[in-house]
Write a protein that binds this DNA or RNA. Structure first.
Lengths: 251, 251
DNA sequence: AATTTCTATTTGTATGAGTATATCGGAGAG
DNA sequence: CTCTCCGATATACTCATACAAATAGAAATT
């Protein structure tokens, strides 16, 4: 003892990371900074002591935050060498938490495009597998999701959540853990479009009929129709997105 | 406490985790245990103090290990509630480190199947994108990889590494970060087949011609041929794998 | 110029004290 | 009897400090 306690309220203000534990809050803060390009690949972090003092947290908490980012492939650290940002190619960009950090702010347009391209690759195949392997229970989940989409509409958070649940259910129905692991990536893309379109007040077409077509195909175990339905659904979503992406001006 | 059989050397022996830092070693140990089903979803871990004492490490190191596993979606921890294993659906099974843990031991056959199915979805599309967008430099990397595959053969570690580099280069050439992030997943599957087939001493067919066909298609920017070539390549790999998987007996 | 040795810097590990939080059980109200 | 509230308590979380290990880079050596 001998050293006086710090003013704790200062940190609350500085970070304001909700009810997260401190290490999580710091991880998010650092992760977000890296994603936004504040720290670029190859950049060296300050030492643990300086960093933890600047952030008004203990070295323990700071180190745990760094461990989290290392686990996600964003950082590496070695004695004497320090802690530095890894090349983008090493980042686990499909990690759910990382996607959450990205989409909390203004995500990179290029990456959005990449994510949609991934959707285009994954989801038609997933729909086909789902049509072949879905259980009745999984089908029921899809039905409920569609009901709620219809009930709330895509302009409400509930409706968008239901949309995500539908796509999630399709992936789950593939009975393939590797495909299902991409649910958060697909979900992020799904969520982004609808949110964005709502923000821009352009709802060019009702996506519900397409969703229902996919649903019917999966219900009747028509694999080809399921794939085609999903392709069609995505074609529309992507067309809308292209409008947004090629649009001039910020955001 | 009475039941300890501890040396200081025991940890070195028990974990024998190479030159990993302690927290990494513990993370790997716990992660592997979870993957092998020693700790099942829903299971509660012992307290930090007990756990760290049993493993002969400090609470600091143990906690950092747990942070890593939490970052990968395997665990969650809350005060009073304890630390428990999350449902499989939450695990980031495509995380490179996690794949390494899986394939270090005897990976789950079902998951291998899932991974190959994912390959079947991803790689043909990736080949098509690569044919459209590859740079000359990326093409050169593929060429070098094929040369080394031919030179060393798939029965050598060098040859298998070259095989992985080829598939990695194709994914990189898509210029899509989301697809490229799946490189380690694809790589794990690639590596597993060749390693396994070599161990079983069955090399049914030379995969090089197929690889070269894909390469030529990408070189000439023939998207359709690239896709078809990759489909063909995978058809063979999967056929071999099916033989292995349906084979009776362990492993 | 290449190699080895040294050393200073940085992360890694350990420990103990104290804080915050959520679960569980029990008391009280309906 | 069921439900809600509330407080005791177990548990993870945070902090501060000390010391250990490793390693990049300089210095000495060949």
């Amino acid at each position: 003892m001998g050293s006086e306690r710090k003013d704790v309220t200062e940190r609350k203000f500085a970070t304001d990371e909700g009810s997260l534990r401190i290490h999580q809050a710091i991880a998010r803060q650092l992760g977000t900074a890296i994603l936004m390009g504040v720290h670029k690949p190859g950049d060296l972090f300050e030492g643990e002591i300086e960093a933890s003092e600047r952030l008004h947290v203990s070295r323990t908490a700071y180190r745990e935050a760094v461990r989290i980012l290392i686990a996600k492939g964003m950082l590496e650290s070695r004695p004497k060498a320090g802690t530095r940002v890894l090349p983008r190619s090493r980042w686990n960009v499909l990690d759910p938490e990382m996607l959450a950090w990205m989409f909390a702010g203004e995500p990179d347009r290029d990456f959005i495009r990449d994510l949609f391209e991934l959707r285009g690759v994954i989801e038609p195949a997933a729909a086909e597998f789902a049509a072949r392997r879905r259980t009745d229970e999984q089908l029921a989940i899809m039905a409920r999701a569609l009901d709620e989409m219809e009930k709330h509409g895509l302009s409400t958070p509930e409706g968008r959540a239901a949309d995500q649940r539908f796509h999630h259910a399709v992936l789950a129905a593939t009975h393939n853990d590797a495909l299902a692991a991409l649910a958060s990536s697909v979900g992020a893309a799904v969520s982004w479009t609808t949110t964005f379109k709502h923000r821009k007040k352009l709802l060019p077409r009702d996506p519900l009929p397409d969703h229902k077509a996919v649903y019917r195909a999966i219900a009747t175990r028509d694999t080809a129709a399921a794939r085609n339905g999903m392709v069609e659904l995505l074609r529309l979503a992507m067309a809308d997105m292209d409008v947004v992406m090629t649009e001039p001006g910020k955001l």
